[in-house]
Design a protein around this nucleic acid. Structure first.
Length: 627
DNA sequence: GTAGGGTTAG
């Protein structure tokens, strides 16, 4: 044949075709530090025809789809350039879309895949089901389930567990359970998926039953239980489970400790929080940014700012959440200006504030009575940072104006904002009406609030307080009757104090305590000294706080925070700071009394109520009587 | 030559 190369021919050395061994270029992909380099390798692969090798092209598509330096656009180009794409490439591109938070696209790719007659495999379905969980798209999930059956993959454990997870979180817990019950082999992830399903459905009974039946439990099982209790507001149980977990010798990880710290923060039990912090240090648990934020939050919510600041400084990789936790911590503890200062530092450090940051910042302005600052930050938020205010931000603004008693600006805000006011907003307004004695607007806001939040006891109490203030006693009774009829119960006020790591809890009019004699003797003394200092009880503010029976038996002197403070006085050395955590808001009468007590007994008293901190010192409070 | 379940922040 004429085209045959003569035997004598030897090509010039420079023109030697540099035929790479099949995987040379592919193995270079891992070294790529940017898209440009990957494209060069891509070009080399085309030149050398290596692109038609299934393995090589798959790896290239995988790089484009999954690497930080990749590009989904190029991944898709590769996908479309291959005649008969192997499912691997489709899987990679689908997975890439999941990573980039685009689950919808992932599902659309599956559709294309079927149109091009590419048969999905077990990997494909795990990714797709994850996409359905992310969206969430339970109906699509159900369809996929039937495809899984069609392809005979229903016994794949990964797919089965994903299906359980998807059904459980999308309200079809019985479908999830059906798969669980009909599985021939249950692995730990199956158990955990089902466990999480019950946790998600707030079904504590089934959750505990399943947990008790588990043949073995791993870290995730324990974390699920702890998180469940935190979610349900059962903070002591959360810590109890944590204790049991340690007894069983299971080592906690950052996820565990984030949950536990959150529970401690809600309880306000500083000694416990310090113990967890020491545990983290001692066991060398990695202080990732989440755990850092949780520590800051815990210290801040326990009223220990120094601790929060130290944790903040120690968190090396500060995320936007880290800054948010510190800013809100400063604000809650009455350090509004410092919070705003920190916000400036955050801006100059190059971290971009998010919507939560602005809630924290506006909240700082509100707590500090810094009206004009607040107005300016609100403007900056959309103008400088392009963050559109949501209802929560408008809520902050209303709160800001409320505290300052600027009723026309409140009205203007509510009138001009692009959404309807929510219960939180009416509540803030109602609170302001009480403090500024604006009875007319207060009544209006109260009725709106009850309309929007008919199950919230606070709605009724606040409205009743307004009526009581106006001496409209028939209306007070009306509200009370309405509450009774609807079966709304007000949880009893309770306060706790932690002494030497032990938490003592008191409820209003508590007489069950083993040291009640001593406590009531102390209360008596406190009452005497308050009276001598010119204090007069004001019963109007909390008529609905306690039952009528109790009104007769006990006086305001027996509110839980006072009981806790009395107990603190007895059991600590003079001059020691008293820290009390209350489940509801401090009533106005107690607030005045505690101010005086701080002076009479020369003690710093820190009370955390359901909204903020009150630092009572020398006769005044850090909240400047706005709360 | 690819996969699974868990957390927080006003």
């Amino acid at each position: 044949m004429s085209s045959a190369i003569p035997a004598s021919y030897s090509p010039p050395i420079t023109n030697l075709p540099r035929k790479p061994t099949p995987n040379t270029n592919v193995s270079l992909l891992v070294l790529c530090k940017n898209l440009q380099e990957a494209k060069q390798i891509h070009a080399l692969m085309i030149k050398s025809s290596q692109i038609s090798d299934t393995y090589s092209v798959s790896r290239l598509a995988e790089f484009y789809a999954l690497s930080d330096h990749g590009s989904l656009k190029y991944a898709e180009k590769v996908l479309n350039s291959v005649e008969e794409p192997y499912p691997f490439i489709w899987n990679a591109v689908i997975r890439g879309n999941l990573i980039k938070q685009n689950p919808l696209k992932a599902i659309l790719l599956y559709d294309q895949m079927l149109r091009r007659s590419v048969e999905p495999d077990h990997f494909t379905f795990t990714f797709l089901l994850k996409a359905c969980t992310q969206l969430p798209a339970p109906a699509t999930g159900k369809q996929l389930h039937s495809h899984v059956v069609k392809y005979g993959l229903e016994n794949d454990s990964f797919i089965r567990n994903k299906l359980i997870h998807l059904y459980a979180i999308s309200g079809s817990i019985s479908d999830a359970r059906k798969i669980f019950d009909t599985s021939t082999e249950l692995d730990i992830v199956t158990w955990n998926s089902m466990l999480e399903g019950y946790a998600d459905n707030r079904d504590g009974e089934s959750l505990h039953q399943l947990f008790d039946r588990m043949p073995s439990r791993d870290l995730v099982s324990w974390n699920t239980m702890i998180a469940f209790h935190v979610q349900m507001g059962e903070f002591r149980q959360a810590i109890e489970v944590f204790r049991r977990m340690q007894e069983k010798g299971v080592q906690p990880n950052p996820v565990t400790l984030v949950s536990v710290l959150s529970a401690v923060a809600c309880l306000g039990t500083l000694a416990q929080g310090r113990w967890i912090h020491a545990y983290i240090d001692k066991h060398g648990v990695e202080l990732d940014e989440n755990l850092g934020s949780s520590l800051i939050n815990m210290y801040a919510k326990c009223g220990c700012l120094e601790g929060a600041i130290q944790a903040f400084q120690k968190t090396s990789n500060k995320s936007v959440d880290t800054w948010n936790a510190m800013i809100s911590g400063l604000a809650a503890n009455g350090q509004s200006l410092k919070a705003l200062e920190l916000f400036s530092k955050m801006e100059s450090s190059g971290i971009r504030p998010n919507a939560i940051t602005f809630s924290c910042v506006l909240n700082s302005c509100s707590h500090g009575g810094l009206v004009e600052y607040g107005v300016d930050y609100f403007r900056q938020m959309s103008e400088v940072y392009g963050i559109e205010p949501v209802i929560a931000h408008y809520g902050c603004m209303v709160d800001l104006f409320c505290r300052a008693g600027l009723f026309n600006r409140i009205e203007e805000t509510i009138r001009t904002m692009p959404m309807k006011p929510d219960a939180v907003m009416w509540k803030a307004l109602l609170g302001a009406c009480r403090i500024h004695r604006n009875l007319e607007m207060g009544e209006q806001a109260g009725l709106k609030l009850i309309e929007l939040a008919p199950d919230d006891h606070a709605s009724y109490v606040l409205l009743s307080n307004i009526y009581a203030m106006a001496d409209k006693w028939d209306k007070v009774h009306e509200v009370r009757k309405m509450m009774w009829k609807r079966g709304i119960m007000k949880p009893p006020g309770s306060s706790s104090i932690e002494l030497d790591g032990v938490v003592y809890e008191f409820v209003v009019g508590d007489t069950a305590h083993s040291r009640k004699k001593e406590i009531y003797k102390m209360l008596g003394e406190m009452g005497e000294r308050l009276k001598n200092a010119g204090y007069e009880p004001d019963a109007k503010q909390c008529l609905l706080d306690i039952d009528e029976e109790e009104v007769k038996q006990t006086s305001l002197g027996h509110h839980s925070e006072k009981l806790a403070i009395a107990f603190g006085f007895i059991n600590t050395r003079p001059g020691t700071t008293i820290r009390v955590v209350k489940n509801l808001r401090v009533c106005g009468d107690c607030h005045s009394a505690i101010k005086l007590l701080s002076k009479i007994y020369n003690r710093e008293i820190i009370v955390r109520d359901s909204n903020r901190f009150h630092y009572f010192k020398n006769g005044s409070c850090s909240c400047m009587d706005y709360w």
